[in-house]
């Protein structure tokens, strides 16, 4: 019970901080950066459920992000449907595709799983690029409408900020619930050892598939939010590199940590904004940070720093 209480406190603190930020920040640029942090947090959280908790790597997660974005773009622009009709369709599309792809792919493990998801991601991004008549091809898809409820249009950055962070907060709570439930324990069992989990009666295949589908649905929602914020999408945003960026957010922030997703997404969104002064070195710094964190803090920043703190405390106790 106590654990749930602290999490509720953390969520309230977080909600208060987000609300305060939303009200006090008066600069559209900062609001927009925060919106991107929100969208990226959702993405990182979705992958963290799969990678951090269930231990199933995905190098093609941007595919689902893209499916959400393209589904809503096509439905709400080409077919003039309300985005709120497009939203369930976008999520449904991601779920169906994740289900179909997940059955054979999730039977793989380790590198083979990584390569399987990578192959899937590459094929989806090639489809975005080559299915010219539907997706607008490499030039991208223009003219995606803003979201609206009745007469209220989410066309200011502030309103969108609250929408995005509201969604993020909802998923923070939901994911925490899942992790603390029987399902969450089963997932961690799979992470620690699939055969052992199966031996104690966890239906590993079904469990992995459901978390994969959930993860895809969340990524698709992030894509939906992205499309209606930027009003423009192009295949480059959902390429292999985008998948790697999502993995990086999870890994840097901390695997199997909900708040780590927030930290990872914030760092990876803010870092390029700060780094742009040494543009040519950016790629090297990025690669180096990724390697160093993995070598020295393989559990990510939040977990890693906690581990160091814990170790030093243990030493003190002695």
């Amino acid at each position: 019970m106590i654990r749930i209480d602290t999490h509720i406190i953390a969520c309230i603190v977080f909600a208060a901080a987000a609300t305060a930020a939303g009200i006090l920040i008066d600069n559209a640029y900062y609001l927009q950066v925060m919106i991107f942090i929100g969208i990226n947090t959702l993405l990182a959280l979705s992958l963290n459920m799969l990678m951090g908790y269930a231990g199933q790597i995905s190098l093609g997660h941007a595919a689902f992000y893209g499916i959400g974005a393209y589904a809503t773009a096509i439905l709400s622009t080409t077919y003039n449907l309300s985005p709120w009709i497009a939203l369930p369709v976008a999520i449904f599309a991601a779920v169906v595709i994740a289900y179909i792809v997940g059955i054979p792919t999730l039977r793989l493990t380790g590198y083979y799983l990584g390569m399987g998801t990578l192959g899937f991601g590459m094929i989806v991004s090639i489809i975005f690029r080559e299915w010219y008549s539907v997706t607008g091809g490499a030039s991208g898809f223009v003219g995606i409408p803003p979201l609206s409820i009745g007469n209220f249009v989410f066309d200011t950055d502030r309103s969108y900020f609250f929408l995005v962070w509201g969604v993020v907060l909802f998923f923070f709570i939901m994911c925490r619930r899942i992790i603390d439930s029987r399902v969450g324990r089963a997932l961690r069992a799979i992470h620690d050892g699939e055969h052992a989990a199966a031996a104690v009666g966890v239906n590993t295949a079904k469990m992995k598939l459901s978390i994969f589908v959930l993860s895809a649905a969340m990524a698709s929602l992030a894509g939906f939010l992205y499309a209606h914020q930027v009003y423009f999408i192009s295949p480059g945003s959902f390429s292999f590199l985008a998948s790697i960026r999502i993995v990086t957010m999870v890994v840097i922030g901390g695997m199997a940590s909900i708040w780590g997703s927030l930290l990872g997404a914030s760092l990876l969104t803010l870092l390029p904004e700060w780094l742009h002064t040494f543009a040519d070195y950016e790629m090297m710094v990025y690669g180096l940070v990724l390697m160093l964190v993995m070598i020295f803090l393989p559990r990510g920043l939040t977990r890693g720093i906690l581990d160091i703190y814990e170790n030093s405390r243990k030493k003190d106790d002695r």
């Binding site: 950016e282 790629m283 090297m284 690669g287 990724l290 390697m291 993995m294």
Partner: peptide, 8 residues
């Protein structure tokens, strides 16, 4: 990470 670093 190494591949990004080497490319840079």
């Amino acid at each position: 990470g190494a591949s990004i670093f080497l490319r840079g």
